[in-house]
Amino acid sequence: MNFKHINTIMNKELRGYFNSPLAYIFITVFLVFSSWFYFRGFFLNNIATLRPFFTMLPWIFLFLIPAITMRLWAEEQKMGTIEALLTSPISEWEAVLGKFLASFSFLIISLFLSGILPVILFFVGRPDWGMILGGYLGSVLLGGAYLAIGLWISSLTNNQIVAFIFSVITVFTLFIIGQPIVLQTTPVFLTSFFKYIGMGAHFNSILRGVIDSRDILYYVSLIGLFLYFNVTSLKAGNGIASCYYEFIKTI
């Protein structure tokens, strides 16, 4: 693993975000929507807490994060630049980590900018700092998992829109699967399993301010798993894309 390579790819992708309007649109939409929904309830509740902000984040992320990751591999495959990238003397892990860390940094930058909300809270009341920090940690981990999933799906197609839609579907499924509404209708022997693999339950438990190493481990391994999938899909390279293509053609 050569960190210089990872760093080079990460810098290139980050610069790519900020060279295009996407970054500014994303940050604006994210901040406007999250503050709008937050402040709608804020004066009604009259409680200095960020909890509504964090409980809403998974749903905002559901649409915004696939938008961050959709182009990362799909565009390279469409333009053919992936050929130049993967014939450089770098390993697949370096390429995947470089892209992941770029999108991850972008997410952290966006979350950092939303830090204006707790600052406002601090002026108007006495918020619980532990909960806010826990909420940010949970958001970073949840966002990271969304990014890893979206990045993997982007590597399976050369169409950004397809990548976006499939990422939303996959992330939604994995998030909802551990929620009570799904658990009520699943067979009993599956409930504990669903509860464990669902992203929502782990997020809620971090939100409560209880930082359990199991939840952190869950997110870290989820990220690792999808990055690993990403590496394997790159290794299969043209093979996998042409397999899908032929498969679709034969249908």
């Binding site: 053919g80 050929e83 130049a84 014939t87």
Partner: peptide
């Protein structure tokens, strides 16, 4: 990796960013 270091490659259609 060693092989790739020794090769300079201009792919078909010259893809660039």
């Amino acid at each position: 990796i060693t092989v790739r270091q020794k090769i300079g490659y201009l792919p078909e259609n010259n893809p660039l960013y």
